[in-house]
Simulated assay, not measured.
Amino acid sequence: MNEDKKRHTVWLTPDAWSQVETSYTKDNCTTKNEYIEKAIRFYTGYLNTQNAASYLPRVLADVLDGKLGALGTRIGKLLFKLVVEQDMIANITAAVNEVHLDDVERLRARC
């Protein structure tokens, strides 16, 4: 979002503020201000469309992008851990079978 921001005073009921406090982390927002700004943009977009169906697919795409981005990051970290474990197993197998680097290079030269 735009970094050129200005301070505004907004009065909210305790119930509305409680909803903000409990929900902003669920939407992957780092601040309550970010959550409120996203809510305003969503509702304004909803009001400006004649049919909500034309607006919801774009919102769904944004939500899916956020969720899939988090999933991709998590899968990347897990794949890295898997590769490290696989490398350790390969080193242990090579040590137990007394395979040396020069033996591997000779085998590669034959292929």
Rank of each mutant, 00 (worst) to 15 (best):
L64M: 09
L79N: 15
P57R: 00
G45Q: 02
L64G: 00
E98I: 14
L101Q: 12
P57S: 02
V99H: 06
T73P: 01
Y46Q: 01
L79Y: 12
Q19F: 15
D62N: 06
A61S: 09
A52M: 10
K38E: 09
I36C: 09
T25I: 10
A52D: 07
W11T: 13
M88Y: 04
A95V: 07
D4S: 14
A61V: 00
V83R: 12
A109D: 10
Q19M: 14
R41W: 02
A94I: 11
K38I: 03
V96W: 11
I75S: 14
N97Y: 13
A94P: 07
I40Y: 12
T49K: 09
D4H: 14
T31S: 09
M88I: 12
D62A: 06
T13E: 11
T31D: 02
Q19C: 15
S54T: 07
K81A: 13
E21I: 02
T31A: 02
K67Q: 08
Y43A: 05
Q19R: 14
Q19L: 15
C29E: 08
Y46R: 05
Y55I: 00
T31I: 01
N91L: 15
H8T: 10
R110M: 11
S23I: 03
A16F: 12
D27S: 10
L56W: 09
V63R: 08
R41G: 03
E34R: 05
K38G: 03
E21C: 09
P14H: 09
I92K: 10
R58G: 07
Y35G: 03
L82V: 13
S18P: 03
L60A: 06
A16T: 12
S54L: 04
I92L: 14
F80N: 04
D27Q: 03
G69Q: 14
I92M: 13
F80L: 08
Y43P: 00
D65F: 01
N97D: 15
V99Q: 06
A95L: 12
K32T: 07
R110T: 12
A53N: 13
T13H: 02
I92V: 15
V10F: 02
V99C: 07
L78Y: 13
I36T: 03
N51K: 12
L82Y: 06
V63Y: 09
Y55Q: 02
I89A: 11
L78Q: 15
L60P: 00
T9M: 09
T73Y: 10
R7Q: 05
G66H: 00
E37V: 11
C29W: 03
G45L: 04
A94W: 04
P57Q: 00
I75T: 15
T13G: 06
L101V: 14
A90K: 10
V84C: 01
V96I: 15
A109N: 04
R108F: 13
N33V: 01
G66Y: 00
R74F: 06
L60C: 07
T31Q: 00
V10S: 01
C111P: 00
R108T: 05
G69E: 10
A16H: 08
Q50W: 04
T93W: 12
L101D: 11
V84G: 01
Y46K: 07
R110V: 07
R41T: 00
I92W: 09
V59Y: 12
R7S: 12
L78S: 14
C29D: 08
P57D: 02
A90G: 04
R74N: 10
T49L: 00
M88E: 12
Y43G: 05
R7E: 10
K5I: 14
T49S: 05
L101G: 05
P57E: 00
V59T: 08
L64F: 07
D103W: 08
R110H: 08
